[in-house]
Design a protein around this nucleic acid. Structure first.
Lengths: 136, 136
DNA sequence: GGACATTTGTACGTATGTATC
DNA sequence: CGATACATACGTACAAATGTC
């Protein structure tokens, strides 16, 4: 399955394989990703390789890890519609630690924030996986 | 400086220290972050701990790593102003690999994308570190 | 509550590959 | 070509959180 001789790093090959399983529905939202130990046996690579592959998927926002429990495919939540006033400007970036805490972004989840400003003043900071901005 | 007995993991303490140096201007945009070896000596922790700290800062979009050269503090670019039409909706998420390639997001950089849709159809996908949406 | 197995998190060591200077 | 610097990948050990019996 994984080929150390390919140009692509092993952990990326593994991430590709798992991503494919998520996209094709073999791993469904909310379901558990096989444990690190299981993946070690399944793919014959070391723990670090597994962990880096899972870390890459976390960065893509596809999975979240929970200590003592396991890693699961993210279950998309219904999004709140947030109205953006005229004249506003919108940026997106990664949150600071303080923002993570305030917005309740789970440790291990990689979620951008949407920042709405009006006249240079911040009007709102939103976790990007829970809102959709509307311009109307 | 770093204290293994604190509740906070070493690599996060180190990330905090480096982030502080960036925010306070001791490490200026575009300047080099000390090399992994230098940081090993400076803080007395292992290479992996250093790398995880730097990885955390990359996830925050504060630094980028360049193989064979080093790690440097990101230099914020002037942002293109993109007008959003009435009725549009905007989401933000992490890019797919294909989008990364298309938008020219460097490997190792953690940059969200802004997705503008109108009537359910995608009108634009932008690298979040290079644009600001305006609604007027 | 306590004991235990499972699972992820953290942290160290070591070796090799690859790109830049 | 050599030195430097980051990337990948193996191994090991212990800590911390969770669930089960």
């Amino acid at each position: 399955m994984l080929d150390p001789h390919l140009d692509r790093p092993l952990f990326r090959q593994l991430a590709d394989a798992l991503r494919d399983q998520i996209i094709t529905g073999q791993l469904t939202p909310g379901s558990a990703v096989p444990s690190i130990k299981a993946l070690e046996h399944r793919y014959g690579v070391s723990r670090e390789t597994i962990r880096r592959a899972l870390a890459a998927l976390r960065v893509e926002g596809l999975v979240v890890a929970e200590r003592g429990y396991g890693t699961r495919v993210v279950d998309e939540q219904p999004r709140e519609q947030v109205k953006v006033p005229r004249g506003a400007r919108v940026r997106s970036r990664m949150p600071t630690e303080a923002e993570r805490a305030e917005l309740g972004i789970e440790p291990g989840a990689v979620v951008p924030v949407l920042v709405v400003t009006l006249g240079g003043r911040v009007r709102g900071v939103y976790a990007a996986d829970r809102v959709e901005l509307t311009f109307s």
